[in-house]
């Protein structure tokens, strides 16, 4: 088969809804694009554990502490499903981690904001996991088999994350005026970063065209963002909370909210490393990695010794 025929066959499979599997022929830029996207996704799950980890020892009850621990453990699991999917494309785990630690690879900008109060843990589950869920449900339709299967697995678990967050917010809203104010303050700080999670409106780039024609992504950033807003605004209103966007208008004919201008300067500034917590996040991640080095070495030495013994 010529390169051209292969590409045609590849496109035919994608158009007919077949999934691409690891050993299938694929264009180099499909592979590269996916490794970049899946590993960014994996890094986001792993770095995403840090802002919430901040509150494990200060959770207001044992019930909340157990829930938060389980939720953060899930995020570690999500990271591992995704690294595993990226590895089916030929990326190595060592290299993926190296790229995160040197800052070569990016992760979701939202995790560069601090968790100042307990209400932030509610806002993260409600808004950040809510936004992640909208994105991930759509990604089940991605053309790459292992990525799609990882999304199915993740989506099953995200529903709990989202609900526990909304429950925290609802509890605070039923509490004292100070507690309700805490919930409002968290919403005020997390709303726009959550909106930005979907990324800027897709520009007509080859990158974007490829990812749509090869169904790497199933939906545009803009349409996912709209879905999230339509879903979340009524949830805020039901608790008597106010979304910090004066331009939010509901159109009953389309059941859609229009919204104000997103500050993309802030978004790019944070992505480039200038958010309030970028340095702490990467430092914490690197420290955990470096502190675990002796464990990795000891386990390797132990495995070697044991296999020698069983060979003898």
């Amino acid at each position: 088969m010529t390169e051209e025929q292969r590409l045609e066959e590849f496109q035919r499979k994608i158009d007919s809804g077949e999934k691409i599997e690891p050993k299938d022929w694929m264009p180099e830029s499909y592979r590269k694009n996916l490794i970049r996207m899946i590993s960014q996704h994996a890094h986001s799950e792993i770095v995403g554990m840090l802002p919430e980890g901040n509150w494990i020892t200060r959770a207001p009850s044992l019930r909340r502490k157990l829930i938060l621990l389980a939720k953060i453990q899930d995020e570690a699991g999500h990271g591992l499903y995704l690294y595993s999917a990226a590895e089916t494309l030929g990326a190595s785990r060592e290299e993926l981690l190296e790229n995160l630690h040197t800052g070569k690879a990016k992760y979701s900008s939202i995790f560069n904001y601090p968790t100042l109060t307990w209400a932030d843990i509610g806002a993260i589950g409600w808004l950040v996991d809510g936004a992640a869920m909208v994105n991930q449900v759509s990604l089940i339709k991605t053309s790459y088999g292992p990525y799609s299967r990882a999304m199915v697995r993740i989506c099953k678990e995200e529903a709990f994350h989202n609900r526990q967050g909304y429950e925290i917010i609802a509890e605070l809203c039923n509490g004292t005026p100070e507690q309700k104010q805490m919930a409002q303050d968290a919403l005020d700080r997390w709303w726009w970063p959550a909106i930005q999670m979907f990324g800027p409106e897709d520009t007509k780039s080859t990158h974007f065209e490829e990812s749509m024609k090869w169904k790497i992504k199933a939906e545009s950033n803009e349409s996912l963002r709209q879905k999230f807003i339509n879903m979340t605004v009524p949830q805020a209103e039901a608790r008597g909370l106010k979304i910090p966007d004066p331009n939010l208008v509901f159109y009953p004919e389309t059941k859609t909210y229009t919204y104000g201008e997103v500050d993309w300067n802030e978004f790019f500034n944070v992505i480039q490393g200038n958010g309030p917590m970028n340095k702490q996040r990467v430092r914490a991640r690197k420290k955990a990695h470096d502190d675990g080095k002796w464990v990795r070495e000891a386990a390797t030495a132990y495995a070697k010794k044991k296999s020698k013994q069983s060979a003898a």
């Binding site: 591992l80 595993s84 590895e87 785990r93 697995r153 386990a299 132990y302 495995a303 296999s307």
Partner: peptide
């Protein structure tokens, strides 16, 4: 088949 893990030996 559900995915993969990294480990130093079979128990791990």
């Amino acid at each position: 088949h559900v995915g993969s893990v990294h480990a130093s030996d079979k128990e791990m």
